[in-house]
């Protein structure tokens, strides 16, 4: 069955906006979605895969390279047949082994044919796409270490079992989880560009609407999809237009000053906060069809770009979202 359409997800606007922003500009970095169970986190990620515009890849390339020159030489690809594929959205299950993530010696071929060959892992498959980790806060530490390294460098380097392999691994990290079950390591937190908090809708009408649409999706599939896929197509066109407009968005000195002063007021660690905020605001402006970043865009992007970057008092219950909102009101009146 085709996944539930992205536009048909009721509410959860911040989560949807964050995902759209990363689709417009993958350099923003990943999205972290924290919240209760059954709030549509996984649904949104799977819907995103269907929403994204397809990419051109060299046929047979294990890491979805765009041109023959980009293909790693160990893949042994000589023909540049370009095929169109949906943007990859790769699931990373908990308890996944290191070999499956980074790739490893192809044991089957080694044992049966005596050949030394590399079997690409999840990181290769996620190149130029999305890597989705459900329950990211329960991920084992040694896998997190691997991810940190690759997410930072954009390249996966495998040095083991007599293999020396490297390939590009640029992906948007999407993580979801439930904060009640454990904290996320601060280092990994920092690698996510945006972070959103989702909660179940509080209004009864919204909840009824969720049920109505789900019911239609399951029992009146054809008509439902016909309607919402048209909406998705509109959104896709908007994303493509925003991608094209991204480079032309003007960044005034005032906007830069605004970004810096918000981050300064919040005392966010490092400079990644400012950079992400600017990139997110730029994507926001492009999505809205504006030709310059305004204070409105910065105000809308700030909570998701900065929420998880504040120097964190591990014992502060109030949540950092409230702190960001307070400072925003003061610094950007």
């Amino acid at each position: 069955m085709t996944p539930f359409p992205f536009s048909a997800i009721v509410g959860q606007d911040e989560m949807k906006t964050a995902m759209i922003l990363t689709a417009i500009d993958p350099r923003i970095g990943g999205v972290l979605v924290f919240g209760d169970r059954g709030t549509g986190k996984s649904t949104a990620v799977r819907a995103l895969a269907a929403l994204l515009p397809p990419i051109d890849v060299v046929a047979g390339c294990p890491c979805n390279s765009a041109t023959l020159a980009d293909c790693p030489d160990w893949a042994g690809i000589t023909q540049a047949d370009i095929v169109t594929r949906p943007t990859p959205v790769v699931d990373m299950p908990l308890g996944v082994s290191e070999d499956r993530v980074t790739g490893a010696l192809d044991i089957e071929r080694a044992l049966t044919r005596g050949e030394k060959a590399f079997q690409a892992g999840l990181l290769a498959r996620a190149n130029r796409g999305y890597l989705y980790i459900d329950e990211v806060n329960l991920l084992e530490d040694h896998i997190v270490d691997l991810l940190l390294d690759v997410a930072q460098s954009g390249e996966n380097v495998v040095e083991r079992e007599g293999l020396s392999i490297r390939h590009p691994a640029r992906f948007v990290l999407v993580g979801s989880g439930n904060p009640e079950e454990g904290e996320l390591r601060p280092q990994l937190l920092d690698r996510f560009g945006l972070s959103v908090e989702v909660s179940s809708p509080r209004e009864i009408e919204t909840r009824i609407e969720v049920m109505r649409r789900r019911d239609a999706y399951e029992n009146d599939h054809a008509a439902f999809m016909a309607h919402w896929q048209a909406e998705d197509a509109g959104l896709r066109a908007q994303i493509l237009a925003a991608r094209a407009a991204l480079a032309g968005v003007q960044v005034s000195n005032v906007a830069l000053h605004d970004c810096a002063s918000v981050c300064l007021a919040l005392g966010s660690d490092g400079l990644r906060g400012e950079l992400t905020l600017l990139a997110a605001a730029r994507a926001m402006a492009a999505f809205a069809g504006a030709d310059a970043i305004t204070r409105e865009h910065i105000r809308a992007a700030a909570p998701m770009a900065l929420r998880h970057r504040l120097r964190r008092d591990p014992l502060d219950e109030a949540g950092t979202g409230a702190r960001v909102a307070r400072q925003l009101a003061e610094v950007l009146p």
């Binding site: 169970r37 549509g40 009864i204 969720v210 049920m211």
Partner: peptide
Amino acid sequence: ARTQVAGVAVALGIDSMRAPL
């Protein structure tokens, strides 16, 4: 029926949207 199920789920403190579905 949807309204009632949604109402009961809220009254029982069930946040997840999977439950009423």
